[in-house]
Design a protein around this nucleic acid. Structure first.
Length: 194
DNA sequence: GCAGTGATCATA
DNA sequence: ATGATCACTGCC
């Protein structure tokens, strides 16, 4: 069972999509090789009033993708060296996006993009196979008791209220999850070998 | 604790 | 044009 997440999945409330994206698979295909990793950590940036969001001060050349249709990739450079991968959510005209901070055994949004070869070339493209980067539901259901919610990272400039919103979602027992994934990979490879 | 690095926006 | 800032990482 595996289904590509289509734009309609992303065209809903940012917090709902964020919660549901945990455990979905981020799939990256390049040079004929495909890697699929379960999303383990993310942050939600939601709308005009979110002081932590790039969209708070309005639309600019950089953040315009956030104002567009749901299900598109918003990729930008921070601190001069790290690409950040986001997927846009919510209706057109309403700026919202989800920052992917971890997938599989990769922790940290900069390491994720470095590992998967993601940069400005993906900015503005659809989160569909044509872009080489998309999301799939592979039948994993993450129960509420395995979801931890905390404040977002690195946004102290956002003021008391918005800096404290529990918009960062991560899987508890992340190590066990990645262990199970690598186990599944070993079993799969063994099966291939016969 | 803080250096490195370069795109972005000029507002709070 | 310049300068402050930054949704990070790795090393001290």
């Amino acid at each position: 069972m595996q289904a590509i997440l289509l734009p309609r999945f992303f065209d809903r409330s940012a917090l709902v999509v964020g919660r549901e994206l945990l455990g979905k698979f981020l799939v990256r295909r390049r040079r004929g090789r495909e890697v699929a990793l379960p999303v383990t950590e993310l942050e939600v940036y939601d709308g005009f009033k979110d002081r932590a969001s790039h969209a708070f001060w309005g639309k600019t050349a950089r953040n315009q993708v956030m104002f567009g249709d749901a299900g598109h990739l918003y990729v930008y450079l921070v601190y001069g060296m790290h690409w950040m991968l986001n997927v846009t959510v919510g209706p057109s005209g309403y700026p919202a996006a989800i920052l992917i901070r971890g997938a599989g055994d990769i922790r940290g949004p900069g390491k994720l993009t470095a590992t998967l070869g993601i940069d400005k070339r993906q900015n503005g493209t659809s989160a569909l196979p044509a872009s080489g980067l998309w999301f799939e539901d592979r039948g994993v259901r993450v129960p509420d008791e395995l979801v931890e919610k905390t404040a977002r990272i690195g946004i102290s400039y956002a003021g008391n209220v918005w800096a404290k919103k529990p918009y960062r979602f991560l899987l508890k027992e992340r190590d066990q999850v990645t262990l199970i994934i690598s186990y599944a990979r070993i079993l799969h490879e063994r099966k291939q070998a016969g």
